[in-house]
Write a protein that binds this DNA or RNA. Structure first.
Lengths: 101, 101
DNA sequence: TTACATTAGACAGATATTGACAAGTCAAAA
DNA sequence: TTTTGACTTGTCAATATCTGTCTAATGTAA
């Protein structure tokens, strides 16, 4: 599930209003609405605030948020899976190099 | 291999000078140098021009270029692999949804 | 209707990206 | 050693993108 849908689901489960959560995040209700609907991308800071406001794991939310950004970036490419595979390969290489230090 | 290193290798194999390739791309030599060294990210247009100038597959270069952007985005995260896995999962979901249309 | 939650659009200000220029390093040739 | 040519680096103005808010609109239940 996309990041926006996920946090909306969390918010609704907790029976919180947009304005309540947005207020805790110190942003406008409209902005949170857009983030939940996926028409605006949250900033890292805002994801952290969200985790706090929704009492959820910050790491988990950040993970979903980053994955979401990647998806938005390549979802329209015909070879998106190959791109991810290549990225994974590169990450592995980097990790190995780091360990050698 | 990162995108920049890769295109530098290609250029050197073909014995082309920065200024020759840059000229074909209608950009400054300095900019191409930075792209090859990874201190600047090429624009999509420039990757296309590069493919032309180096006589390489545009799709392949674009793939590497996108993978590179993803790597730059998450390489410093401790859970980068998990992030990629999640992204892959989402992409699969999207693909399935599309097929249902 | 009224009240309240949510959403859409438009805007100005903040931030980031872009490409070029000039000055720099470096190595090989003269 | 000077010169030459390839490449690199730092800086900067112009441009493009992003940010958050405001206002107005939509939807919905009482």
């Amino acid at each position: 599930m996309a990041f926006g849908n996920y946090i909306r689901k969390l918010r609704e489960e907790k029976q919180l209003l947009l304005r309540e959560v947005a207020s805790q995040m110190s942003i406008d209700t409209a902005l949170l609405s857009k983030i939940e609907r996926g028409t605006r991308i949250a900033r890292k800071e805002q994801v952290e605030d969200l985790a706090e406001a929704l009492n959820e794991s910050e790491n988990e939310l950040l993970k979903l948020w980053m994955a979401d950004k990647i998806v938005k970036m390549i979802k329209d490419e015909s070879n998106s899976t190959e791109i991810l595979k290549k990225a994974e390969e590169e990450i592995k290489n980097l990790t190995n190099k780091k360990q050698q230090l």
